[in-house]
Amino acid sequence: MNWVWTNFDMIWGLTLSQIWLSVIPIVVGFLLSIPLGYAASRSKAARSILLSAGGILYTIPSLALFVSIPVVIGTSLLDPTNVVIALTIYSVAIMVRSSADAFASVPEPVQDSATAVGFSGWQRFFAVELPLAGPVLLAGIRVVSVSTVSLVSVGSVIGVSSLGFLFTDGFQRNFFTEVWTGIIGTVIIAAVFDLLLVLIGRLAMPWNRRVSDRKLRRVASRSAVPVS
């Protein structure tokens, strides 16, 4: 415990870098998945192409992706951008399925009646389909959030610092206080993110409070793919 206090500045610095390394992929992945998921919910062909592509991308081992991105886009090997891009790819890959399911979950009578009373295409998307896709989108982004936070740690193997550094360093020195600090820190970040997402969902979707958590968890577990 003493070790934690004496090294608090370093741990806090690693925590902050872990946070921003995960926030960017979560947010960008979410935004990208909206148009892709919408397209997938509109056409069978688009759905099968996008979902297969997502599935394939997700099976690339993270380490392989981290080291191949600099080769493709010409960044230096230690550049954190590599990790951010790799995690964004994973995040889109998982999220596109949730997003497709989310838009498909909007009841057809509601869509029809929105058209019937005179919503234009864009109005219908932003005022009807997007908000009603919200609960399933939220379930998906919660899965993405946890998975991204834990994958960021892997980046420390290639020298991009995050709490994951505490695992690698701790193991090398056989110093388990450090390892535990890394693990607990990562879990706390993931839990805080999840809590924030749930709160945002509550505020943005007051009409949805009565929907049971069970239903959402079912959708979320369907979207989750084991991490390689």
């Binding site: 929105a114 019937a116 005179g118």
Partner: peptide, 21 residues
């Protein structure tokens, strides 16, 4: 078409109300 629809009332079987409003 959009303006036309706004000028005509439409009611359907499953009320088609917006659940989030």
């Amino acid at each position: 078409a959009v303006r036309l629809r706004r000028s005509i009332g439409y009611v359907m079987q499953q009320s088609g109300l917006l659940p989030h409003r």
